[in-house]
Design a protein around this nucleic acid. Sequence first.
DNA 1: AACGGAATGTGACAATTGTCAATAGATTTA
DNA 2: TAAATCTATTGACAATTGTCACATTCCGTT
Lengths: 196, 196
Amino acid sequence: MFEFFAKYLVEKGGFTESELELVRQVTVSKKIRKSHYLLEEGKVSDFIGFVTKGAFRLFRKGEDGQEYTMKFAVENWWISDFTSFLSGEQSNCYIEALENSELMWFSRETWDHLIATIPNFRRMIDKLTARNFEAHQNRIFSNISEPADTRYENFVNSYPTLYNRIPLYMIASFLGITRETLSRIRKQAAQRKTTN
Amino acid sequence: MFEFFAKYLVEKGGFTESELELVRQVTVSKKIRKSHYLLEEGKVSDFIGFVTKGAFRLFRKGEDGQEYTMKFAVENWWISDFTSFLSGEQSNCYIEALENSELMWFSRETWDHLIATIPNFRRMIDKLTARNFEAHQNRIFSNISEPADTRYENFVNSYPTLYNRIPLYMIASFLGITRETLSRIRKQAAQRKTTN
DNA sequence: AACGGAATGTGACAATTGTCAATAGATTTA
DNA sequence: TAAATCTATTGACAATTGTCACATTCCGTT
């Protein structure tokens, strides 16, 4: 599956053949089965993964014991608890495989090495970080300014390869509503469609 | 007011005297009066500011025309629309001075120069970026997992130097509720306190 | 000090969302 | 394949939040 990752590096980072080779040499591929965890609360997220197959979610447990989905990741997405990765402290998140999945796996040491030795790599990650910042801003804005039905609509439009692949109750918690409410929102949306 | 900034650089970044001098040479101080704007929608946020006096808020206008506060900044905080700064594209935000304020003002060129020439500066900003990421995560988690009264309580506890200095309707929009709801939450909280 | 506008508080009611319970459908596992 | 588990939907009702209207307080300007 390295070729899948290589394609990404060429397209997003403009990597050359020799740069790709440098990355290949340190890339570890890892398979993980559905419902298994890549990370659990209390452990340090000392890796970064690039998803080549499957799907993941990152969630936290609330005071109420409920699971709140912070993020999804499918093919071509990066996955880690970056907060824990960057601070080196224990994570308060879980990362769960939602399907049988496969990823390119980078330890903290490997990651730092790539950043330090391949300028293109750092550039790519800096761009990614900026995009991430923007996405966070947009999500916060959505949360404070839009009603639930609009948030769901936006979610579907923003993640067309994602929304019909993931259990609805996870989407509900991602949006900050209950599964029942999401059910009703979807029903209303469907009715509006047939009426038009 | 550079001394105020210098203190920050020493405490947070461990800057040496000679490094401070390098920063001082390129630092521009800027005053701005209450209710004036540091940034308006449609312009590019091509600066980063460090607040040495006063207070700011960064907000976006929603579809409904309402203003939604994305962030506050008081003394010792950085202020900019980082999304626009990082992408170089037009901002969809406003930055408003909430009091007569003063800041250390860095153009994009100056900023890049500081990052490139002072390793300590980049290190400090990298740390800051990591903290920022964590803060975003926590806010999103708060938005999707906590009821409004808890969010307000957390806000007060998290920003003790801020919450009683800023109009309530701005706090309400920051939390994603209406001013009326915030009013009632505060009333209930006060009643609980006198009852105990 | 007085005025006017902005900000906050409050009541009545509407709309939205949550909770609980029951059911049906889908998927996994033995 | 069948049983068990997980997921999604729905109804009835409760709780929360929003909307609108108006009163009150606060604050800056003259």
